[in-house]
Design a protein around this nucleic acid. Structure first.
Length: 1161
RNA sequence: GGGCGUAUAGCUCAGGCGGUUAGAGCGUCACACUGAUAAUGUGAAGGUCCGUGGUUCAAGUCCACGUACGCCCA
């Protein structure tokens, strides 16, 4: 590598200097590759390269094939991220998968468009904008003006787009930012209102009530996710809990019998009692009627859950006296027992008369006992007070029972003025609560109950209670009007269509997602907010002339209102406040007084997300043809929680609008956790900083760590720096080191002129030679770029066959894995191959490289080139650098995926080499057992295996397999024997009987335990082919015989080969002769000296090929050994002059080395 | 409170239709090997398979109950 001789490799590099670095800095390489891609336009080329085959109509020919993917295109949908925060590991993880699958499919020949999507609407954006503006409630938004507020939201959601692009780019995710889609674009929003109108026209939308957490200070409902804004939302709070009486007046099956009995109902929200409209009981709960003592505070009959009678004994007036407790007295006073289901429809007397005029309030079905399965007996009385407007379960229960939702408080949670007015019966029991905030009114209500004799018990109750995340006000639950999608109407179709979706991991299909579908409820899609797609519904502002209109396009709006909604700049814009400005006279109002106004709500942001497949292309207004052929998507990926989010809402809309799935294959991955197994938390600092990892270990390292983990199979993943570095060690470094090794030798070959390696082909054009394995060499192989006649006389060794076959298997395995979206399996295959390549092929081939056997260069080149292509989706940056260095080509990502069928499957070569590896591994263990270090040569290893002749080979010279075994284990002579020719007993090998209980159990029943015991204890025999164990005869198949080492056999160590290992080693074993002769000891010492000299060379920082003069100082014994093996020592250490200095018998061996002038040719 | 899920080595996880000696990777320790490699090889220690009860010739595996944790919904 001098200036006169520029190196052959790397043939292309992103680095300024053409050099393969020994100590590699991956992050630097990555940064350079990213720049190269940008300058080169590689991403766009990778898409433009692939053609779409079109049919006669001009539509892409895209029928789904059996694997679920399409002919020439692979359709990917980007799940839109929300950009008002910075990306975290979860986004990175998803982003890597979103890159990997399209990269793979591109190499497989598909055209894969990838548009980035931005989710821009919704409450999180508003909340963030409010924070920026220092606002705390809706009144401030209204006074600022919706226009300006929405401007702030728009700026907020796009605040971090640059940072997002930088992250996405740094993680080497190829995605089109220029041709992106944003949910705030008017085209996107027009498709969204189109979808709403479609649903409306199909009768799948309706208006109703929903109960939401509500902040009475901000006067706004909160979404459930705001309850999880931070950890301080739920705080302990003390509330009064009261138990009140509801006297039964009749009704139901038992009304006559139970009339006059008091239902005892419990609540922690006394302020909802004025709107009590029903009492819920559990169907299977047993209720008891107790006769309270006449002299007590509550004489009469009371009903409550039987389990809770004792708990209420004292409240009902029972007392402890003599030996009888109050609880026992109460139990004794039980005069009747009823199951909840028998109590249905009992009627009771309301507490007050404010709402008893059914003609005004529609309460003709109120004040009844209802059966609800949510009732328990862990708190209260087992009878639950229900107020339809103030609890979600209450509301649903009431709706089913025909009871209306009636609000008793205003937006500030203050009781309405009507409470100061007389009730139909003429009194004003709760006059003092009118205008009072609900919590403040509790006291007055409780006092009233007490005065009315309706209070059984009052107790303070401490519970975890939600608070507003902004103002810390305790929330209430309150009904608000809402628009719904009637999901329950087409739930069955959703379940049926789910059958067409391939879920990874598969259990999600019928598990998390399938069950969620089966229990689907109607989808509340309206939000009383500002920044979102509008609900395109206009309603008359006078209920006397009701009229509802729904619009599904800008043109329809223009037709009805005279113009598009236009923003300040005059552009068509569907956002508030512009859309709200469209009004018109109500055509159904003959007086001409009332006006059609848009309902104020905006759509749930998930409606946007679910519309993404069609809205991203402005369907149906544009691209109708495109959409028809690019839906469902071939592939999407998001985290498992999206079974209730994106996956779900896309499925709803795809089913309702198109009656087909929105996606064919979906990966739902697990959650990324911090190093302590908890959720990642900035304040806890329990995860490595993303940028630090990028800078220190690199994007490919992070990609590998995430992709190789079980997280894509649904498990959770703990992110640790060690885990990331482990991937570097297992794959990235071996891959780089293999490349470095190759370049080092290829560059210095031919006296420094270098050698350009080429792909290995057989004469008939297959990639691999089909030469006989087991021979020490095969027929000549052709080298790519040369005619068959011109091929140099390359000979593949069994080792070459092995690694080439392994490369073919690698391609097959990774192809299969990625075709089924099994990413971690693909990683495992690559990891295994990297290990075989470096720790076996290259390690075993060092001498050949040193000796400039160019066949090995070509084989390593072929294998590395294959490896980098197969690794390209999983390690896109490092693969690129190595592949370009090897080939000088433009990009590995523009190549075709290797065709597994062009790799000859050479099972025999693999099998024999695996057996060889098994033998060396077991041999190592034998050495360990015999306490003989490897540098100590041993005389003989006897290898007994079935079909020994295959290992021995047919060649005249020594079998390469035997040679490998001898070298690896430092054995003078390997004796290969066929298992059929030897008697195991002579080597101390015995047999062990194992009963196959699965086979024998059914036949022998209880007896099988005796046979098992006998086999274990040695109480068994074999005579004339009949095996008897524990006195029982076993039949063929009911037992197996395995070889086992019975004892140490004198001067040798014996081991049995793992029966499961490759090459049919069943019954094979090794015998290691551990006898040491003085000659062997001397050679061992000489080898130790070689090691000492090598270490000295390394310390002196000499070049690999430097010739040296060596001076050794050592004990007489060592000197003698070195003298006896001086040729060995000199050759191994490139020593030309060897000086020996004899010291004391205890002298430590020391070596001094000096480089000599002549350099190695 | 409800639904779903999980519980196996210090850590992360595998463990077909139940089969008798429960595995892997990482980590730890010891030894070995090493002139491409911040690598590698061999071995050792490490288990109340969450608990209790049941079914069975046989239970980590099936059933019931309980406990703990997680996610979702309240």
């Amino acid at each position: 590598m001098t200036e006169q001789n520029p190196p052959v490799y790397p043939r292309a590099t992103s680095a300024s200097e053409r050099k393969v670095a020994t100590s590699v800095r991956f992050p630097e390489i990555e940064e350079r590759i990213l720049k190269y891609w940008e300058a080169d336009g590689t991403f766009h080329a990778s898409i433009a390269n692939r053609d779409v085959v079109r049919d006669q109509t001009g539509h892409p020919e895209n029928p789904q094939d059996s694997a679920g993917s399409r002919g020439t295109e692979f359709v990917f949908y980007d799940g839109p991220p929300f950009a008002n925060g910075l990306p975290h590991y979860g986004h990175l993880l998803t982003g890597y998968v979103k890159d990997l699958v399209p990269r793979y499919q591109t190499m497989r020949g598909k055209k894969v468009e990838r548009r980035f999507g931005w989710d821009t609407h919704g409450l999180p954006a508003e909340l963030s904008a409010m924070k920026d503006l220092g606002m705390t409630d809706k009144a401030e938004i209204e006074s600022m003006g919706i226009e300006h507020f929405n401007d702030a939201c728009r700026a907020n959601v796009l605040k971090f787009t640059k940072e997002w692009e930088a992250y996405v780019n740094r993680q080497a995710r190829w995605v089109d930012f220029e041709n992106d889609y944003k949910t705030l674009n008017v085209e996107f929003m027009e498709s969204v209102i189109w979808a709403f109108k479609q649903l409306h026209d199909k009768g799948l939308t309706y208006q109703g009530f929903r109960v939401l957490p509500y902040c009475w200070k901000d006067e706004t409902p909160l979404s459930n996710h705001e309850l999880r804004m931070d950890d301080e939302v739920y705080q302990e709070r003390q509330d009064p809990s009261v138990t009140v009486t509801f006297p039964i007046t009749g009704g139901g099956a038992l009304g006559d019998q139970l009339a006059g009995v008091n239902l005892l109902a419990w609540t922690t929200t006394p302020w909802t009692l004025p709107t009590n409209f029903s009492v819920a009981v559990g169907a299977e709960i047993e209720y008891a009627v107790v006769e309270a003592p006449a002299e007590g505070p509550l004489p009469g009959k009371h009903m409550l859950a039987a389990d809770l009678v004792s708990a209420y004994a004292k409240d009902l007036g029972f007392t402890d006296h003599d030996d009888v407790t109050a609880a026992e007295s109460a139990q004794a006073a039980v005069i009747g027992r009823y199951l909840g289901k028998d109590l249905a429809n009992l009627q009771y007397r309301p507490l007050w008369d404010y709402y008893t005029d059914a003609s005004v309030w529609g309460t003709q079905h109120a004040w009844r006992v209802l059966i609800e399965d949510y009732v328990t007996t862990t708190d209260g009385t087992g009878l639950v007070h229900q107020a339809s407007a103030y609890g979600e379960e209450d509301q649903q229960s009431s709706e089913a029972a025909g009871i209306p939702v009636i609000l008793s408080v205003d937006a500030a949670a203050e009781f309405l003025p009507m409470f100061a007015e007389p009730t139909p019966s003429g009194d004003t029991p709760l006059a003092e609560i009118a205008g009072v905030q609900v919590f403040a009114a509790n006291r007055a209500i409780i006092n009233r109950l007490k005065a009315d004799g309706r209070l059984v018990r009052e107790q303070s109750y401490v519970h975890s209670y939600p608070h507003c995340w902004r103002c810390r006000t305790p929330l209430i639950y309150k009904a608000v009007t809402s628009w719904y999608v009637a999901v329950t109407e087409f739930k069955d179709r959703m379940v049926a269509i789910n059958e067409e979706i391939n879920w990874i991991p598969e259990n999600v299909k019928y598990g998390q997602f399938g069950k969620w579908l089966e229990n689907a409820r109607d989808w509340s899609i309206s939000r009383n907010r500002y920044w979102g797609s509008p609900i395109p519904v206009w309603a008359s502002d006078n209920p006397e002339y009701p009229r509802t209109e729904v619009y599904g396009s800008l043109e329809e709006l223009k037709e009805a209102f005279g113009d598009y909604p236009r923003n300040a700049a005059g552009e068509p814009d569907l956002h508030r406040p512009w859309i709200d400005q469209l009004t018109r006279p109500n055509p159904d109002d003959p007086t001409g007084q009332s006006t059609m106004r848009r309902v104020e709500d905006v759509l749930d942001v998930w409606f946007d997300s679910g519309s993404m497949p069609f809205a991203q292309v402005h369907y149906p207004f544009e691209n109708a043809g495109w959409f028809d052929t690019h839906n469902p998507a071939d592939f999407i990926v998001e985290y498992i929680g999206q079974t209730r989010g994106w996956f779900y809402t896309m499925h709803i809309l795809a089913t309702a609008l198109f009656d087909r799935p929105a996606f064919s294959n979906v990966i739902s991955h697990g959650i990324v956790l911090g190093s302590d197994g908890q959720k990642m938390s900035k304040s806890l600092q329990n995860y490595p900083d993303v940028n630090e990892v990028f800078d220190r270990d690199g994007s490919d390292a992070m990609r590998w760590f995430l992709m190789a983990s079980p997280i894509l199979r649904g498990g959770n993943l703990i992110v640790t720096e060690e885990g990331i570095r482990e991937g570097v060690r297992q794959v990235l470094l071996p891959m780089w080191n293999a490349w470095h090794f190759f370049a080092l030798y290829a560059n210095t070959a031919n006296n420094g002129a270098g050698y350009i390696a080429r792909n290995v082909f057989t004469e008939d054009g297959d990639r691999l030679s089909r030469t006989e394995t087991g021979a020490d060499s095969g027929p000549p192989v052709a080298i790519e770029g040369e005619s068959a006649e011109g091929a140099h006389d390359a000979r593949l060794t069994p080792l070459d066959h092995y690694i080439l076959a392994a490369a073919g298997d690698l391609v097959r395995e990774v192809t299969e894995a990625l075709d089924e979206f099994n990413v971690s399996r693909a990683c495992e295959a690559l990891r295994g191959f990297a290990e075989t390549l470096t720790n076996w092929y290259i390690r075993r081939s060092r001498a050949r490289f040193y000796g400039e056997d160019f066949t090995s260069y070509d084989v390593l080149y072929t294998v590395l080139e294959t490896f980098t292509r197969v690794a390209a989706p999983l390690l896109p940056l490092v693969s690129e650098e190595i592949w370009r260095g090897l080939t000088g080509g433009r990009s590995v990502h523009l190549t075709d995926w290797p065709d597994p069928d062009t790799y000859v499957k050479d099972e025999r070569a693999v099998e024999l080499m695996e057996l060889t590896r098994t033998v060396t591994s077991a041999g190592s263990a034998l050495r360990k057992q015999a306490k003989q270090r490897v540098r100590q040569p041993l005389a003989t290893l006897t290898v007994v295996v079935p079909n020994a002749e295959a290992l021995a080979g047919t060649g005249a010279s020594e079998s390469p397999y035997v040679q490998i075994i001898a070298e690896e284990l430092n054995i003078k002579q390997v004796v290969l024997l066929d298992a059929a020719d030897v008697s195991p007993e002579q080597f101390g090998i015995g047999q062990q009987l194992v009963v196959n209980a699965r086979a024998a159990g059914p036949r022998l029943g209880k007896q099988v335990q005796h046979a098992i015991k006998g086999a274990k204890s040695g109480d068994w025999s074999m005579a004339g082919g009949v095996v008897t164990a524990g006195g029982l005869e076993l039949q063929e198949g009911e037992y197996t015989l395995t070889t086992t080492v019975s004892e140490e056999a004198g001067e040798s160590a014996v081991t049995v080969l793992d029966a499961a290992s490759a090459g049919g080693a069943r019954g094979g074993f090794l015998v290691l002769d551990t006898t040491l002769t003085p000659e062997l000891v001397a050679e061992g010492i000489a080898r130790d000296v070689v090691r000492t000299v090598q270490a000295a060379r390394k310390d002196a920082e000499l070049n690999v090929s430097d010739r040296i003069e060596t001076t050794l100082t050592a004990s007489p014994e060592v000197i003698a050994a070195v003298e006896a093996h001086s040729e060995l020592v000199k050759a191994e250490t490139l020593t030309l002059t060897l000086n020996l200095v004899e010291g004391e018998a205890t002298e430590e061996t020391r070596a001094t080395v000096t480089a000599l002038k002549e350099s190695h040719a």
